[in-house]
């Protein structure tokens, strides 16, 4: 119910916000979806990843390359991005889920860095250091000819984000979500029940990766540009901050934190430039100390008190 209300309010935003803020909100929503997908790993599966941006990048490059060489349809590009995310998740996840805790963290960090290197070194395909530019503007069912593009694209992004959230929420609530939480709480018992613990974890990585890649496609379509830095540890940390700020075991919390952080970055980076990272770092430290359960924890505490 609350989700439908939130979607309705968000859908009405083009009537309230100007083009610039709307574009900013579009980016915020895309990052919100990616942060929520990371929360499925960090909070629900207990797998802290430092390489989640690799999925953003894989989705973004897949969508961008599809746009340049195959199809200008946003839907086709999204499909390509999700497919690439699934394949990338299965290949890297196969190894990653056999580690845990600190080693999972290091392994995912390495995967992210390898992805950056791969994007930088294969310049003929990806544009190398300069990034993938010249991505054509996506077509959106022809609606873009009837209305301002920024508005149509916002609704497209909102629809993708809503669908992604629906997938994440359904998975968390269903049997797979219970199995994922089970492997987080008690591996030995899950194995004794007959669950393959690596299999359950791989499913979690794949769902999170596919959803994150969908968010990556939105980033590529919105900016019509992808850079190797999109895959890097900086973005991974940003996503992790969003998750910790919003609340690990929540979907809405990280999304809210993402929108807030993207807006904050827009406001502060104009004045501070690269020093914006100091703000991000300070926020990170503050939220670890003051909000161990994130914004969602604050919300729950108030709900309990009421």
């Amino acid at each position: 119910m609350r989700a439908i209300l939130a979607a309705a309010v968000l859908a009405a935003m083009p009537f309230v916000l100007g083009a610039y803020q709307l574009s900013l909100l579009t980016g915020g929503l895309a990052y919100g979806l990616m942060a929520a997908s990371l929360a499925l790993l960090v909070g629900h599966a207990g797998l802290p990843s430092l390489g989640h941006a690799a999925f953003l990048g894989v989705g973004a490059y897949a969508a961008g390359l599809t746009a340049k060489h195959l199809s200008e349809s946003a839907v086709v590009q999204l499909g390509a991005a999700v497919l690439a995310g699934v394949v990338f998740a299965l290949v890297t996840g196969w190894f990653a889920v056999r580690t845990r805790g600190f080693f999972f963290l290091m392994f995912t960090l390495a995967i992210g860095e390898i992805a950056v290197q791969a994007a930088t070194r294969s310049g003929r395909v990806t544009g190398g250091d300069n990034g993938l530019s010249g991505i054509p503007v996506s077509t959106l069912f022809g609606l873009e000819t009837a209305m301002p593009y920024v508005v149509v694209f916002y609704w497209w992004a909102l629809a993708v984000v809503a669908a992604g959230f629906a997938v994440l929420a359904a998975v968390r609530r269903g049997p797979l979500g219970a199995a994922i939480a089970g492997t987080r709480e008690n591996e030995a018992r899950m194995a004794a029940f007959g669950y393959s613990v690596p299999g359950v974890r791989l499913a979690a990585v794949t769902v999170a990766g596919a959803v994150c890649a969908a968010g990556g496609a939105l980033v590529a379509q919105k900016d019509t540009f992808v850079a190797p830095t999109h895959l890097g540890v900086g973005v991974s940390v940003l996503l992790l901050v969003m998750v910790l700020l919003g609340g690990r075991d929540s979907l809405a919390g990280p999304a809210l934190a993402a929108v807030g952080l993207i807006a904050l970055r827009d406001v502060t980076s104009g004045a501070l430039g690269d020093k914006w990272l100091l703000v991000e770092g300070a926020l990170f430290v503050l939220c670890v100390y003051l909000l161990p359960e994130g914004l969602a924890g604050l919300w729950r505490k108030r709900a309990r008190a009421a």
Partner: peptide, 20 residues
């Protein structure tokens, strides 16, 4: 209940379904 349901779903081969 959920502790036991995890075992029931595993036995029925439904443990990894996304939805039921």
């Amino acid at each position: 209940l959920e502790n036991v349901a995890l075992a029931v779903r595993a036995r029925r081969g439904l443990g990894l379904r996304a939805w039921l």
